[in-house]
Amino acid sequence: MSTPEAPSPSVEAQMRRRLRRHNRALAELAATKTELVSALLHELRTPLTAALGMLDMLPEQTGDPLLDEALPLISRNLRRIERCTNEIATISGIESGTIPLDRTEFDLPGMLRRVAGAAGADCATAPPDGLFLGDRERLSEVVTRLLAAVRALSGSAEIEAELVGGEWQVSFPLPDEQVTDRLFTSTGAGGNAMALIMARAVVGRHGGSVGVHSSGGTAYLRMLLPL
């Protein structure tokens, strides 16, 4: 049986040059995204800080019925923008590595059971315990928010975790009707879109991924976390 011929040096050199070009393009794209996010955050925070400062100087009751009704609404929306801005900054920092993640050993199934118990949800893990190296607090926050987001879609939520081939598969069953058009896209239901973006940033820094999978006719939102 004949063996395939190895590519000629010229072909290998072309492939290497092409890979270098792709890597440079990706690096430039990542740098552009980081710079854009940083610029946008600066543009948002400057007027936001000024508006919040002025708002804090106003009395709680002005005596004007229209102002007394409008000011709490303005305050709530400004605080909402502030929370969103801070979260974008956190996600950007996690993605770029400027916000470090802890690398400590902890019991991943135990953490999942605690999160599920606090939310009144079911949790099944196989095996029942297992050590994982990573940022326990960030992952706990991610699981908490994904659980709440899935519950907002379906009215109930549970966690299924299984160790398969050297990686943990942490799954959240989705409703039978698979409302994928609403899956983490609306700004309501506790900010589920931001929950998914944060999950992808944190899990990605652990070398894993987050996505929708189907098994046995059931759709799952699934986190893959390699050991």
Rank of each mutant, 00 (worst) to 15 (best):
P7Q: 04
P7W: 10
V11P: 10
V11N: 11
M15V: 15
M15G: 12
R18E: 15
R20I: 00
R20K: 06
N23P: 07
A25Y: 04
A25V: 00
A27W: 10
A27R: 12
L29Q: 09
A30H: 08
T32A: 15
K33S: 11
A39R: 15
L41C: 13
H42K: 14
L44Y: 04
L44P: 03
T46R: 15
T46L: 04
T46H: 03
L48A: 01
L55S: 07
L55R: 01
D56Y: 08
D64F: 09
P65L: 00
P72A: 02
S75F: 07
R76V: 07
R76S: 11
C84D: 14
I88L: 14
A89M: 00
I91N: 04
I91R: 13
S92P: 04
I94T: 12
E95D: 08
G97V: 05
L101R: 00
F106W: 09
D107F: 04
L108T: 00
A116C: 02
G117A: 15
G117K: 15
A118E: 14
A119Q: 13
G120N: 02
T125S: 12
A126Y: 02
P127H: 12
G130D: 05
R136F: 09
E141A: 11
T144N: 12
L146Y: 01
S156C: 03
S156E: 14
E158H: 01
V164G: 07
G165F: 05
E167C: 01
F172W: 03
P173G: 02
P175V: 08
V179M: 05
R182Q: 12
R182A: 10
G188H: 12
M194S: 13
A199R: 10
V202M: 02
R205I: 01
R205G: 05
G211M: 07
V212N: 08
H213K: 13
G216T: 01
G216N: 08
G217T: 00
